[in-house]
Design a protein around this nucleic acid. Structure first.
Length: 645
DNA sequence: GTTACACATTTTTTT
DNA sequence: AATGTGTAAC
């Protein structure tokens, strides 16, 4: 592996703790991998090096690169996300962490439960924050490790009474969560961190477990995660890599102080920098640098391209969503015909929703793709229906799953289901419940039969899914008019389940690390165009990148307008997006900007006029980009001119 | 008192 | 696509 002087210095750092400030494309992953290699070669036990990443994809990439370097011993280096890592220990030592069996719930379930709590505490009140907002408050407060009331008073406009009512809802939510033996994402980190700081035994065990802790994407860690790192370090040494210009998770409580205040918090820590960019051409970096320079915040970042000059980024303005989608699709097809593999292309989108027209164009033109950040397999309604059956067997206290499963059947609605659930909650095990249900619903014998059928093969996840599918198909066929399309997912699910030991583990894996539908179905194809949200794209790269929806209203996103900090984060989102490109960068957008109503600001923004909607690229220097407007402008009925003259 | 169904509304980013 | 809402039907 070839490293430059900066990278080598970081990889072979011999002091205690270090923060590596690594700009986009400066070989961050290579450096971390080289660090692991260096450590193992100097005699450190690979099992005593902990590698924490932000996403499962980053973890996979890291392990892959590591395997290339040191072979199979790469597998012995513990690598994973914070959530993964913490959960592993909660499972290993349930007594130490004072937690028994638990079901991890995803955001959907969290919202569902919050809705119940909200209805219970405040009833119908359209003016009261919706469940999604309440869940955000709750999560944000916990990730920043502060009391909910304090957070609400400081960061929201709610009055004292409002704060009281919100706190009451959140309390009710917490109660319900315990009742159902649920754990939400934040609980995993929270419980781990709490015990780490509260219990001496846990702390001593964890502190003696690792010699080196390597953290990727440090700028995206939040105070709760910092508590975890702080509790485990010393004597373990920290090696944290990050870039404040790429911090795009403030909405989730990410705290840039974890980077800026590193040396104050960790005494004796050193700071190293990686500044040479190996990914992109200078033209791509010029535009990216310009974007950061426009900010009032001094990022003081000027990426230099080790590769030298190339092609200028191209800005394309189209008339509408469909034209934009068509343009991207036809450009892709042209390149493919000229011999470029699909996999060299990445389409980046601000939101999953904004990608729908491009996705449609890809499907229509038979362009193979995977959508990262798109609809997740386990989140689609029909899959949730099926899994609700597995969930109630796995955890009979899972009330949300019971509600979903019971109301699937004819003549059972919310009320009937609720009555049934309150009765079955006290029952000792699923067998007793199953008998009770047989008795209760004589008109729906299949309801209980399905449970019994799944129980006969409970130790073989794939067969369980097969059994559940068989029993529930008649129901679901009726419920969904596009059943043919949906039923394919169940085959896929069965295949995925083959890789798992138990149903519980199967459910948990995909709750914590959701895979997208297209990702799962294209498992074995590898020449694909990647369609991806900017947030998911961090850490990845591609020779040719298309940023779609680059237009007012998206950058900055309308919902961030009026809040300086949020707007700045939007700038960084665009910056992250641009710096993914290696050779060619296209920025496409639609010219139709209707303006937008911004609730936060209580004001209508429009293009032109006195209150213009802010847009980062409204005055991009012309010399930095190429405007590609010479799309085929021939009128459709222009007669053909013969080449014979 | 419930359930079923038609119709309207709404979409930032993620572990 | 998946929720929320209102009304007819059971």
């Amino acid at each position: 592996m070839d490293l430059n002087a900066e990278q080598t210095r970081a990889a072979e750092f011999a002091g205690d703790d270090v923060l590596v400030l690594a700009g986009a494309g400066t070989g961050k992953t290579s450096t971390i991998v080289a660090r692991v290699v260096h450590l193992t070669q100097s005699g450190v036990d690979p099992r005593r090096i902990l590698l924490l990443t932000f996403t499962r994809r980053a973890a996979r990439e890291m392990r892959h690169r590591l395997t290339q370097q040191i072979g199979s011993s790469a597998k012995t280096v513990p690598t994973g996300t914070f959530h993964n890592f913490c959960l592993q220990y909660l499972r290993r030592w349930p007594d130490l962490f004072e937690c028994g069996s638990l079901t991890i719930i995803d955001r959907d379930d969290q919202l569902q439960l919050m809705k119940l709590a909200r209805a219970n505490v405040v009833g119908k009140d359209a003016a009261f924050p919706k469940s999604a907002e309440l869940a955000n408050y709750y999560s944000y407060a916990r990730n920043t490790n502060r009391p909910v009331a304090e957070y609400l008073a400081e960061f929201t406009d709610h009055d004292e009474d409002g704060i009281k009512r919100i706190s009451a809802v959140l309390q009710d939510y917490t109660k319900r969560k315990h009742e159902c033996r649920y754990f939400d994402y934040d609980d995993i980190l929270h419980l781990f961190a709490r015990q780490l700081h509260r219990s001496r035994i846990v702390r001593e065990k964890m502190q003696s477990r690792y010699d080196h802790i390597l953290v990727d994407e440090m700028q995206d860690t939040n105070p709760l995660q910092w508590l975890i790192l702080d509790g485990m370090r010393d004597p373990a040494k920290l090696f944290c890599v990050g870039d404040d210009a790429q911090s795009i998770y403030a909405f989730r409580g990410a705290d840039f102080r974890n980077v800026h205040s590193f040396t104050e918090r960790v005494s004796g820590a050193q700071v190293l920098k990686l500044e040479e960019n190996y990914r992109s051409t200078q033209e791509i970096l010029d535009l990216s640098n310009w974007l950061l320079d426009q900010s009032a915040l001094g990022y003081d970042k000027h990426l230099r391209a080790a590769r030298g000059p190339g092609i200028k980024p191209v800005m394309v303005e189209l008339d509408g969503d469909f034209e934009e989608a068509d343009w991207v699709a036809s450009d892709l097809m042209q390149r493919h015909e000229e011999g470029d593999p699909w996999r060299d292309h990445m389409i980046l989108t601000r939101s999953a929703w904004a990608a729908r027209s491009v996705e449609a164009a890809l499907i229509e033109n038979d362009i193979p793709y995977r959508f990262i950040g798109g609809t997740q397999l386990l989140q689609s309604a029909h899959v949730k229906d099926l899994l609700s059956l597995l969930r109630v067997i796995d955890n009979p206290a899972d009330q949300l799953a019971w509600m979903r499963y019971l109301t699937l059947w004819p003549r059972i609605g919310e009320k009937t289901a609720a009555t049934t659930i309150s009765k079955l909650l006290g029952m000792p095990n699923i067998k007793v419940i199953s008998e009770f249900l047989t008795d209760q619903y004589r008109t729906n014998p299949r309801l209980a039969e399905s449970i019994a059928e799944c129980l006969t093969c409970w130790d073989r996840p794939s067969d369980v899914i097969g059994a559940a599918t068989d029993k529930m198909t008649p129901l679901l066929e009726k419920k969904y008019d596009d059943w043919d399309r949906r039923s394919k997912d169940f085959k896929l699910l069965r295949r995925l389940a083959l890789k798992h030991q138990s149903v519980g583990e199967f459910l948990e894996t995909y709750t914590l690390d959701p895979i997208t539908e297209s990702e799962a179905s294209n498992e074995d194809v590898d020449d694909l165009v990647t369609l991806i949200t900017v947030h998911s794209a961090k850490g990845t790269e591609a020779p040719v990148c298309y940023l779609i929806g680059v237009q007012p209203g998206n950058y900055p996103h309308v919902r961030s307008i009026g809040d300086d900090e949020k707007e700045e984060e939007e700038r960084r989102v665009l910056y992250v997006a641009m710096t993914r490109a290696q050779n060619e960068l296209f920025l496409t957008g639609t010219r139709r900007s209707h303006g937008a109503y911004v609730p936060h600001h209580n004001r209508f923004y429009q293009s032109g006029g006195s209150n213009t909607q802010p847009y980062f690229l409204s005055d991009v220097p012309p010399e930095l980009v190429q405007s590609d407007l010479d799309i085929d402008t021939d009128p459709f009925d222009a007669p053909i001119t013969s080449f014979r003259g």
